[in-house]
Every structure is written in C-alpha cells, then in structure tokens.
Design a protein around this nucleic acid. Structure first.
Length: 463
RNA sequence: UCCUCGAUAGCUCAAUUGGUAGAGCGAGCGGCUGUUAACCGCUAGGUUAUAGGUUCGAGUCCUAUUCGAGGAGCCA
C-alpha cells in the first residue's frame, strides 16, 4: 500500500478508499474512553487531515499517550465523509504507528501562536508551522514560475560563478574568500601576499552575475541567471539579507523600453502563477498576515505599471503637498519615503522609474544623449520599494571607457567585459530581481528574514 | 554603521513615586465532550539578558556589553 500525500486526499480522496498517511501531529483531542481525533500535517498543504481513531485500533492503547503535538506517525485507515464541520473527508484509522515522539515539556512548537522573532531562533522547526510551511510552498511555486516564464520564451539558463576575482561594480561590500591562515597572518603584521592565496589573487563571493551574463547574452542570446548572491553590507532592515537569491535576465538587442516591458510581464506572470497554484496558502496569508494582500496583488495584475522618468518623479515630489524628512533635489537618489509616496500614496501601484542621473548609477549603464542621465530603470512596488533594478547596457566602446575613467575604474581589470564592446557589440539590456523581495511582496510577510529558509544577516548565520 | 525602543515563567506580555514577581497561552493531572482556536477545575514552572555601580532595599535608577525590533543609509 503506497503512502498518499495529504494534499491529494483533501483534494480528491473519495469515501471508502483505503489510505496510508504519514506526518506530524498538530494536535490531538481525546474523547473519553472511546476514540481520539488527530490533526495530521505532512507539509504537502496548509490543511491538516483529521484522523478519527478508536481505542481498539492497532497500536492505539500503547502509543496514544505519546501522540502529542510534534510527534510523527503513520496511520492506515479508510476515508469517510466527515459528519463534523470543517472538513469534507476524514480518515477512520485502523492502525497507528508511532515513528518519533516529541516531548511536550521541551518541544518548542506547542499548539499556540509564536512570534516570528522566536521562530527565527528555531529555524530548524519553523517550517512545521502554518506560516512557514506556506512560505516554503509559495517560494517553490515562485521559483518554478520564474524558470517557466523564461524557458517558455527561449531564454537560456546560465550558471554564473559564485566565487569571483573581479572586484567589481562597487555593488557593495563583498565577502572575501581565502584559504590563507588568518591567525598566522594576524601575528605577522605584514602586507598580505595574495599570490599565496588559493586563486593567486584576491577573491570574493559574487554580488551579481550580470557581467558574466552579458557574455552569454552576446553569444547564445537571451539568458538568465538564478542563484545566490552575497552582500557584506551591515544592513539591518526588513528588506536586506547578506545572502539572497537573485534572478538576472540579460537580453541582446533589447533597449530600455523592451527591458521595462519584460520586467513588468515577468512580475505579473509569476504573481499570476502563484494566485493560480497556491490558492489555499494565499488565502491564509490574506487572512492572517495582510488583509489587503489579494486585493493588492490583483491590482498589480490588472494595471499597467506607471512609467515615470526620474526627472518627472523629482518634479512630482517637489510639487506634492507631502512633507518629507529629506528634501528632494535633482541629482540625488530617492529616499525610502519618496519611493513610498510614489507607490503607496500617489500612484498606488508599481512604478517604473527610468533615466536616472548618471552620477548615482554604475559605469555599465548606457548614457543618454542629454549628457546627464543613463538608461537605468528601477521597478518600485508598494511596501517593499525597489524589487527590480536594471538598465540598458553601454555598448559603445569609447563611451564605456570614458565612463570607467569617470568612475575611477581600471579597464584592464575588466578587459573581457570591454572586449564584448570591441568585437560584435550589440545593444542589450537586463535587470536583477531579488527573489526574497518578491516572496515578501507575494506573501505579505513584513520581514525579509522570514522569506528565506536559512537567514543570513550580520551576526546571524546559524543553522 | 547611525537613531529610537526593548530583553521578566516554555511562549506573549503585566508589575504604580525604587518596597514580598503576576496573567493569558502552552505543559502535567483530573473532569466533560463527534471534537476541530474545544470546554471546566487543579498543579508545577523565575539567579527579571550579561557584568559592574548607586541605595537600608533595584525588574524598576546609572554605566558597559550582548542580542532583538522599528526607522535611516546601502541596495535586490
């Protein structure tokens, strides 16, 4: 007899069927001297299945005392129409096998509400809760939808390196990778000779796969990377992680407008897939986490993202009645409060800002003819802020070299990147999307630390 | 890294001007019940984050440290 996932039983199990199920006990309610109710969950879906088991069932008398919250059991029985409220079918158990006990005195996850802060400290158990089980399932659907979106359009999945020696982009602090003996170096107090290090030069964990993705975009065509990314910034916010996952499509022959179009349809496609495939989990989030979640996502799905140039946005912020803590000036980056005003108060939907001052953007973004701005675009969403950052890339060799000089970068260090402009250069564009920020947007979770299975932030790398 | 707030029972929190440490949930035991956020009764559970200081007396005041939350910066 084969084991059946609880999700399958609840979906289309029919009364009369023999079933074998295994999972973790959420709660048990005893009916004195006659039978017990067991709420069993196997993580396949949000709902538990209710098992009714009589005291003469095999294994009952010896094990039922230990069938406590958190214990793991296997149950054989027959599906029945449930006379009670709350479930279509239930299992009438014939036998119960206790796989593992969970001492109620010490098991942290008792049947009560726990704060997310507490659950973060027991990350090895938190996927057993309703919320974190739902996050895991939704995150999975998001990841699948991401691949599906690109694969269906002929994008090639490219694995870019995690260890890199290009100290590049200035995209933030990097984690150094070394096999040098740090204790010994600390004693010597001399200059570090990186030629002695594993790679013969200073190496770090990647902050972006973009530059490498451009190599494949200009050879095999539209491509995307989807992998872990590392930032050693000491950020302590609800939307930053030290280790996170990023999706970075890169497309040849795409100009900024094509890039924006792709970004918009990408986000809508992924959200649509989740709304379709994770109905139960999404209803849970809407009920328990954010009462406006489904409405917000529906709104995102149904409306065009507003496209506003940086210059227009500055003007709009200057003209509005809202008082800001930080003044707005053309040439400075927007503050969180400004982004929030645009997405939450003014437009009340996602906004794509484009054509930023070149002084606040990296060297690889394509310069506009006005001499002041570059073809950058940020997709801002309510509550979270920037979820996508991208640009059309500078494909003109001379302009790129000038820009590198302006940014105080040595073209020698980026020789292969520059080469792409020297031989068969083409216009191309791409963007980066933070997976966890998308999970945050889709689930309504307020803290990004709860949107990744194993959270890495400054001072936190347990589990 | 900066600003603000916080750390008290397994969890979530309360404790007046500095004066004997409390509740709900959870847990254990008992009762009741086709129950389902079950219900009713009883019981246990604490070096008040850590280190120092002020005081007759500190959960409460002061200093430092650690950790957490919210906001800012950086960004995805």
């Amino acid at each position: 007899m084969t084991r059946i996932r609880i999700a399958n039983i609840l979906k289309d199990g029919k009364p009369g069927e023999e079933v074998l199920i295994s999972g973790w006990v959420r709660t048990r309610r005893d009916s004195k001297n006659a039978f017990s109710f067991i709420e069993l969950n196997d993580g396949s879906c949000m709902s538990n299945i209710q098992v009714v088991i009589d005291n003469d069932a095999e294994g009952y008398s010896e094990h039922i005392k230990d069938v406590t919250t958190g214990a793991s059991v296997t149950i054989k029985g027959e599906l029945k129409e449930s006379p009670g409220k709350g479930q279509r079918v239930e299992v009438q158990g014939n036998s119960i096998q206790l796989l593992g006990t969970a001492d109620a005195k010490t098991y942290a996850l008792q049947k009560k509400r726990h704060s997310f802060e507490f659950l973060r400290e027991i990350a090895h158990l938190r996927p057993r809760t309703n919320t974190f089980g739902a996050i895991a399932r939704v995150r999975n659907t998001i990841c699948f939808a991401i691949h599906q979106f690109f694969q269906e359009q002929g994008f090639i999945s490219v694995q870019t390196p995690i260890i890199t020696t290009s100290d590049c982009e200035g995209a933030g602090e990097m984690f150094q990778v070394t096999t040098l003996n740090l204790n010994r170096l600390a004693e010597r107090k001399t200059e570090v000779d990186y030629e002695q290090d594993f790679f013969g030069k200073r190496a770090s964990l990647t902050v972006s796969g973009q530059l490498e993705a451009e190599i494949f975009a200009t050879s095999v065509g539209k491509c995307y990377t989807f992998g872990p990314t590392f930032r050693a910034e000491k950020s302590n916010t609800t939307r930053h992680l030290s280790e996170f996952w990023m999706v970075e499509p890169e497309m040849p022959f795409y100009e900024l407008e094509d890039n924006m179009e792709l970004a918009e349809s990408f986000i809508k496609s992924v959200i649509g897939k989740v709304l379709e495939d994770c109905k139960e989990d999404m209803e849970f989030f809407n009920l328990r986490i954010d009462k406006t979640l489904l409405e917000t996502l529906q709104n995102i799905m149904e409306n065009e993202f507003k496209r506003v140039s940086y210059t227009e946005a500055i003007q709009l912020l200057k003209d509005c009645d809202q008082k800001f803590e930080y003044p707005i000036e053309w040439g400075t980056d927007l503050q969180s409060e400004h982004e929030r005003y645009l997405t939450e108060t003014h437009f009340k939907q996602p906004v794509i800002l484009y054509d930023y001052p070149r002084t606040i953007k990296p060297f690889y973004m394509r310069c506009n003819d006005d001499g002041k701005t570059v073809r950058a675009m940020d997709v801002l969403v309510p509550r979270i802020g920037e979820i996508i950052g991208g640009s059309q890339r500078e494909e003109r060799l001379d302009v790129l070299l000038d820009r590198m000089k302006e940014c105080d970068l040595d073209p020698e260090e980026y020789w292969w990147y520059v080469d792409l402009r020297r031989y068969g250069s083409v216009p191309h564009s791409g963007f980066g999307l933070g997976l966890e920020r998308l999970v945050q947007l889709v689930t309504g979770m307020t803290n990004i630390r709860d949107c990744i299975p194993f959270t890495r932030t400054p001072k936190n790398a347990d589990f």
